[in-house]
Amino acid sequence: MKSSLIKSTVIFLGLFFLYFPILVLIFYSFNENKRVMVWKGFSLRWYNELFNNEQIIEAFIISIKIAALSATFATILGVMIGYSLVRIRKIPFKSFYIFLSSTPLVLPELILGLSMLLFFISLNNVIGFPSSRGQLTIFISHVTFCIAFVAIIIQARLTDFNKNIEEAAMDLGYNYTKVLYKITLPIILPSIIAGWLLAFTISLDDLVVASFTTGPGANTLPIVVFSKVRLGLSPEVNALSAILMFALIIIGLFYFYFNKKFKH
């Protein structure tokens, strides 16, 4: 009796801690007052201003575009890595391969961002491309660090499922490519979708790497939001937060759905 009381209390307090700030943010987004902290009354005013704020809308579109593209590329390359690490025996310099595909997971974003920026500048000095930084350079950087997240999901999924199915299909006359497209890929499809969703969210959310690799005409949403709230509060950002958090949490739920499906 006593221990189950402790248990419920711990879980309740934990969840309260996790959700309280999000609820506060949503609550204040309905505040009529321009001064965020002084409650004046319920209003949708800031949602209205948000949708009329061209800077934010433009940044949002750029962010979605970069996120969708880099998630797609990162998923293709990440699936290849996951597959290689589990199913292909002969990988030249395998330790180096593992190093390349796992280090972006632990490398602080700041170091990654700096290295990408210096790389693009050096590349420009050598071959004259990219002459200026912008959406393309953010895209390349995001693909690079999202690959690792997709690879780890695919790797886990492939290690989980029985290789015998693939071997049985081969015995029945399927060739290598056919096994891959007809057996392996359909089985890991939920994980591929989960990987894409994760990469999409990471790219959409990234501020640090994008700040380093951005250029004219490539202000992503986090960059715009950060410039608005770095020194103070912004009622428009409150409204944006409420919408974005809701959308992202739904993406998160989809991620769980796909990542767990067919697992047991």
Partner: peptide, 19 residues
């Protein structure tokens, strides 16, 4: 427990600025 982690990192930090 994990779903808040999916919502924007920057905005979760911003929430503490308000609190």
């Amino acid at each position: 427990v994990v779903v808040p982690f999916w919502s924007s990192f920057l905005l979760r930090v911003y929430a503490w600025k308000i609190i």
